[in-house]
Every structure is written in structure tokens, then in C-alpha cells.
Write a protein that binds this DNA or RNA. Structure first.
Length: 488
RNA sequence: GGCGGUAUGGCCAAGUGGUAAGGCAGAGGUUUGCAAAACCUUUAUCCCCAGUUCGAAUCUGGGUGCCGCCUCCA
């Protein structure tokens, strides 16, 4: 296996090599738990789940750590607004996060540490930075002295002069340099605090990830992930802290997922245009969210709106329809037609190559569709009882389930998932199911009487309601039209 | 103001030097009482200009549009 990963540090795809053979230490910057998470927060969770699954499939023992930031200004503000303790607030939202993640059915993380469980580690870390003259104390605060870290800016590609020239740097008189960032800040009256050598206070934002990584993973990790917006300053600062402390390079690969957009805007809490993950998964389905997230390369922006969602529903419907058919016919008769075996092998290779090329998931799905198309062809060509069709069906369903597991996709029961998709659209279009069934009954009565003009007019009525009906040997079945592009 | 990303068919989206994956939508066909699903056929020269090259969507330079970072943010 030769996996190439785009490394933000080098701005190039690099061959992946773990620090220790067969072991991967990865860390993903997790959420600040002061509110329900929006779907953007889950892009990383969903994508890095694939990264870990793929590494594991290739024989690595992966330790995936995702943290909770459970102390910061927003948390304090929110807790004060609600008149509760920060612990009560963060406990609530950590629980909510865990519930949301459970809905996704992804591979569990090895560890979800909380910052507040590592305050002592942070204090130790900061103390050592002060000892090394990489940090200094100023009026109860501790700042990192970026002049002591010559590599500052190497991740984000920023030059110090440019940063200083920027309009947005806040000139704090207690800092030596406007770019120095806080490691420890004194607490104000009524705020939560921890005792430290510098007085009562709390850690700055960036130190938590450095300290937790150091404590859990050690001096060096293989993969550090996060949203693209964390490159600067958060990850830049993590590098400065960690590398100043250890003198070793901190993370070998820095991977950053791009944003979710809503329409033309970045989806962000500060813009207030977020879709809560929970709401989305309730209104639609976790499977749709995962599929949509992975339909676009992780380093590209992804727009999630109603139109995109419905396109994903259509694509998923195609996959699950094929899967359902395959599962119904499936029988391992050892008679899989040779061309189909070759198609599966080609697709397998294509998927593997695509994943090894910096996780090119759109190509992966293209390979799925290639296989499905060929299976559907076989369904058209062969009789249902044909052992070679049954065997192809077995091969296809196994293929989809096994490969899908990498993405934590296609593991749903095909029949009930397709019904769930129908129900999404039924609700959306306000369809009365009893009315639909009555119409179908009327149509079938008309057909029995060979009154085809009546039966056709009823069909048209159903079509107008976005309902597709199929006359099968077992009677008439209906489903919602999942391909209709008319939804906005 | 500084830095960076991106621009591919009606829509979404791969492709980073050799003549454009995949999905949806459109058109025609097979099938059907009629349909649907499925299948088949069909639909792009890749923002503009200049350059490098035997050859560029793919490299270089310039321009334009959109987006992001520089402040909390996945």
C-alpha cells in the first residue's frame, strides 16, 4: 500500500509513513461544547473516520483521539446566560455530541479527552515553556513568545511582517509582541478558575491540544486534523508550543478539511446560518449526511442545501435499490460470470487507488456506480433463477457492504432505508398515504375493467404528487420520485 | 491592506502534460395495455488573453469572477 496524503505543512501530497511501524497516532481538534453541533462540525468527524478505517484496513493499529474543549470564553458566557455552571453546560453538550455521533454509526474514537481533565498537564507544559524562555509571565497572564520560535508561520505560510501589518492584530500592551498568544489567562470575578503558579486562571485555547497530545500520544504524532480555519492561528500555535517544548517536529501530517457552505456563504456560528446536525439527521437521515459529505473531496468546499440533499437522496436511492435487488437474489452459487468478477476487481482497484490518492472519495463512488450499472445489466439479461445472476447478486451485495464499511456507509437495511427515504419525501410533500393507497386501488379496479383511460388519469394524478407506481407480479408498489430535480 | 484557494457540460463533481470519471436533469430507443425501475445510444475542449511544449483543462505570466484566512469558528 502506498498512501499519499496532502500535507498542509508542505502543500504537497506525501507518501504516508507512520512514525512507528503499523501504528498511527491521530488527533482531531474537536468541538467547543457550548451548543449543539452543526453539520459543518461533522465534516471532520465523518472524513477522519474514513481515514482511520482505511488505515486500519491496511493493517495499521490506529489510535484516534478527538477532544472536547470544555472551557473557554463562549462556554463561560453561555453558562452565565443560563445561570448554570460551566460543567453543567458542557456535560449537557458533550452528551448531545455523543448522541449525534452515535447516530452516524462510525467507528468509535479511542479517546475523547476533556480539557478540564488535563489542566495540570497544561500547567506543567506552560511551566516548561517558561523555563525554556519560550513563554513569559505578564500581569497574571502567560504568553508564548513567538520571537523564540523561528519556524513560526511554517504551517499557514504566513510571514510575521505580514501578520503584523494586518489590520486585525489586537495590540495588547501586556504582550511583548502583538502576535504573542496567551497560554494562561487570569480569571475574572465569578469565572471558573484553576490555581496555578501565576495565580487563579484558566488555559488559553491553543495549549490544550498541545498538552493533551503530549500527554496521550507523546512528543510526536502521525496525523493531526481539523477544519481549514484552524490552520491559523490554532494549529500554527500548537506547532510553536509543542516543538518549542520537545525540539521535535510535532505532527508528521497535517490534514485539513474544507468548509461546508450554505448557498454562497460559509456556514458558521458567527454568521448564524448553521444547520444543526441533529436537525438535519432528524429531518433527513444520518446516511444522507455521511454520503453527501464524502461525495465531494474533503479539501473542496461543499455546499449543503436542499438541492444537494435531494441529489444525494437520488444517488443513494440508486445504490440502495441495486443493493436491495442484489440481497433479494443473493445466493453464493460459485457461478459469478467472469466479466462481472473482472468488473468488481477493477472497481476494487479503482477504489483502493482513489483512497490512496489523498482520499479521493468522488472517484470511489464513481466506481460503485460502475459496478451497479453492470449488475443492473445482468438483471436485464439473465432470468431471476439463473444461478449466475444469483451469484453475481451475492458478489455485488458483499462488495457494497464490505467497501461501504470503510465509509461507514451502505450498512443500513436496504428495504427500510428506502422506505425511510420515501417517508422523508412524503413528509416534505405532505402526502396522505391513505389517499395514495386508495388511488392505487381505484386504478387497479379500473385496470381490471380494462378502463385504461381512467387508470392512466389516476397514474397522472399520482405522478403529479411525485409518486411513482410500478405494476409487479406481486401487485402494485409505489415510491416517491427521488430523482425529481424540482425541489428547491 | 497582506496571504491563500478556486473557476470543468443545464446542475453536482472527478481529472494536474497526451485528445474530458461518476450522479442528476435533457433527447432518442428497448421494455410496458400505458407507465415506472433498469438497460442502450446521445449531449462539454475545460473563465479570458499571452506563452512553454510535438502535444495543456492540466505548466508559466497577466487579467476577471467567486471563496477563505489574517478575530471565536470544523
Amino acid at each position: 500500500m502506498t498512501l499519499f496524503i496532502y500535507n498542509t505543512l508542505s502543500k504537497e501530497k506525501e507518501e504516508f509513513q507512520s512514525i512507528e511501524p503499523h501504528k498511527v497516532r491521530m488527533y482531531l481538534c474537536g468541538p467547543t461544547v457550548y451548543d449543539l453541533l452543526h453539520i459543518g462540525n461533522f465534516r471532520g468527524v465523518i472524513f477522519f473516520n474514513l481515514v482511520r478505517n482505511w488505515l486500519e484496513r491496511n493493517g495499521y493499529d490506529v489510535r484516534f483521539v478527538l477532544n472536547f474543549t470544555d472551557i473557554d470564553d463562549k462556554i463561560i458566557t453561555r453558562a452565565q446566560e443560563e445561570g448554570i455552571s460551566t460543567e453543567a453546560l458542557t456535560k449537557r453538550y458533550i452528551a448531545a455530541y455523543l448522541e449525534d455521533v452515535q447516530c452516524l454509526h462510525i467507528t468509535p474514537h479511542e479517546l475523547n479527552p476533556k480539557c478540564t481533565d488535563h489542566i495540570q498537564d497544561m500547567i506543567t507544559f506552560i511551566t516548561q515553556l517558561i523555563d525554556k524562555k519560550s513563554a513569559y509571565v505578564s500581569e497574571g497572564s502567560v504568553f508564548f513568545d513567538i520571537s523564540r520560535f523561528s519556524d513560526y508561520g511554517k504551517l499557514s505560510g504566513k510571514k510575521l511582517e505580514d501578520l503584523i501589518a494586518g489590520h486585525r492584530v489586537d495590540p495588547d500592551p501586556t504582550k511583548k509582541n502583538p502576535l504573542d498568544f496567551v497560554l494562561w489567562k487570569p480569571s475574572k470575578e465569578g469565572e471558573p478558575y484553576w490555581d496555578s503558579p501565576w495565580g487563579k486562571g484558566r488555559p488559553g485555547w491553543h495549549i490544550e491540544c498541545s498538552a493533551m497530545n503530549h500527554c496521550i500520544h507523546g512528543d510526536q504524532i502521525d496525523i493531526h486534523g481539523g477544519g481549514i480555519d484552524l490552520i491559523f492561528p490554532h494549529h500554527e500555535n500548537e506547532i510553536a508550543q509543542s516543538e518549542s517544548l520537545t525540539g521535535k517536529s510535532f505532527s508528521r501530517y497535517w490534514m485539513h478539511n474544507n468548509f461546508i457552505r450554505f448557498g454562497n456563504d460559509k456556514m458558521s456560528k458567527s454568521l448564524g446560518n448553521v444547520i444543526k446536525a441533529r436537525d438535519y439527521m432528524t429531518q433527513f437521515h444520518p446516511e444522507i449526511l455521511k454520503f453527501l459529505m464524502l461525495s465531494v473531496h474533503y479539501r473542496s468546499e461543499l455546499s449543503i442545501d436542499n438541492k444537494q440533499t435531494h441529489q444525494a437522496i437520488g444517488r443513494l436511492s440508486r445504490i440502495y435499490h441495486a443493493l436491495k435487488t442484489a440481497q433479494e437474489l443473493s445466493q453464493d452459487t460459485q457461478a459469478t460470470p467472469l466479466p462481472f468478477i473482472e468488473t468488481l476487481n477493477t472497481a476494487e482497484q479503482r477504489i483502493s487507488d482513489a483512497l490512496n490518492d489523498d482520499f479521493n472519495t468522488p472517484v470511489v463512488f464513481a466506481a460503485f456506480f460502475d459496478v451497479i450499472r453492470e449488475f443492473n445489466q445482468l438483471c436485464n439479461q439473465l432470468k431471476k433463477k439463473d444461478p449466475s445472476l444469483k451469484s453475481a447478486a451475492y458478489a455485488l451485495s458483499t462488495f457494497i457492504e464490505t467497501k461501504g464499511a470503510l465509509f461507514s456507509l451502505f450498512q443500513e437495511n436496504s428495504d427500510s432505508f428506502l422506505k425511510a427515504l420515501d417517508m422523508i419525501l412524503v413528509k416534505e410533500k405532505n402526502i396522505d398515504i391513505r389517499h395514495v393507497e386508495a388511488l392505487i386501488q381505484q386504478r387497479n379496479d379500473a385496470r381490471k375493467n380494462k378502463d385504461f383511460s381512467l387508470s392512466d388519469s389516476i397514474r397522472d394524478k399520482l405522478t403529479d404528487m411525485s409518486i411513482l407506481i410500478q405494476d409487479t407480479p406481486n401487485g402494485t408498489v409505489w415510491e416517491m420520485d427521488k430523482y425529481s430535480d424540482s425541489v428547491d
